[in-house]
Design a protein around this nucleic acid. Structure first.
Lengths: 150, 150
DNA sequence: TCCTTTTGGTTGTAGCTTCAACAATCACGA
DNA sequence: TCGTGATTGTTGAAGCTACAACCAAAAGGA
């Protein structure tokens, strides 16, 4: 019971803390940051929308709206996938790359401050196991199928 | 890094899972359920808005809107606090009590299924410690002061 | 007493997410 | 070849949250 109530607290509070820092320092929400970060680590800084949605744990409609806004801001660009005419690729622009490079240090520091440094090294290891187990129960196939299983 | 990415995954995915089940079975969001649950455990099933906001890890504007909607649905009622004319009390109605009683078993089952049963007893204990430590770093005074410290 | 600050709460608006509906392409079998 | 169903992605509307502005009452000081 204690564990559950505290986990709920973390789930409610953490997004707000992350969003605040990023909005203040970079005009980004945490999810937008996450999208840019995943793109920046992908080959050619390009990913198909579906793949990007999976890696960011989001639904496709959500991602579609977010990418459109990022595109309007010049941080990302979209173009049709050559192999599959249905698919769309999202690619980080030079401005987007600059943005994530400039933003990452401050964000990492925030995460360290509010999460990692609050835990012992053993607890960090335990957290990885625990969060992994919960993810396995919430999203067994790792493809967000859980979101559509209502 | 692994721990952090997985925690982010949980934070993104868990709310959706909880909301889905509650919306499907009870026409409630998880936060609305939480408000009803906290009231149901309070003396006289009554709490001042500020206290209720703290216990549900929410800002006052958010709570105010939610309580208004719950009041429109007849699950909660508001009345001015006798001791402090500024304050408002929120009280669970009979219908609200019925609602939470009817909804709790299914919700608990969902939580068990997606979280508790996915972990070993030791991990549940570890989770309580870890989540407690993160909460301490995110909201040191336990009064949501962090939310306003931007 | 009077004025200022703090606390408690509400409201309106903007912005993001969810949901349902839709369009287009691909895959597969008759 | 044709049609059916499954993928891929976008869009518009509805709903919830965050933020800022606001009001009223209490607290504290001069």
């Amino acid at each position: 019971m204690t564990a559950w109530l505290r986990l709920v607290g973390v789930v409610e509070l953490l997004p707000g803390v992350l969003d605040s820092q990023l909005r203040r320092d970079a005009e980004l929400t945490h999810y937008e940051y996450y999208v840019l970060a995943m793109l920046s680590e992908a080959p050619k800084r390009t990913l198909r929308m579906t793949a990007l949605a999976q890696r960011t744990n989001a639904t496709l409609p959500r991602l579609s709206h977010v990418v459109k806004r990022l595109e309007d801001r010049g941080l990302v660009e979209r173009f049709p996938c050559p192999e599959d005419a249905r698919a769309t690729n999202a690619r980080l622009t030079a401005a987007g790359w600059k943005k994530i490079r400039a933003t990452a240090p401050g964000h990492v520091e925030t995460v360290r401050q509010h999460v990692i440094d609050a835990l012992t090294p053993e607890q960090v290891t335990q957290l990885a196991e625990i969060a992994g187990a919960i993810l396995g129960a919430v999203d067994p196939d790792g493809d967000l199928s859980a979101l559509y299983r209502r």
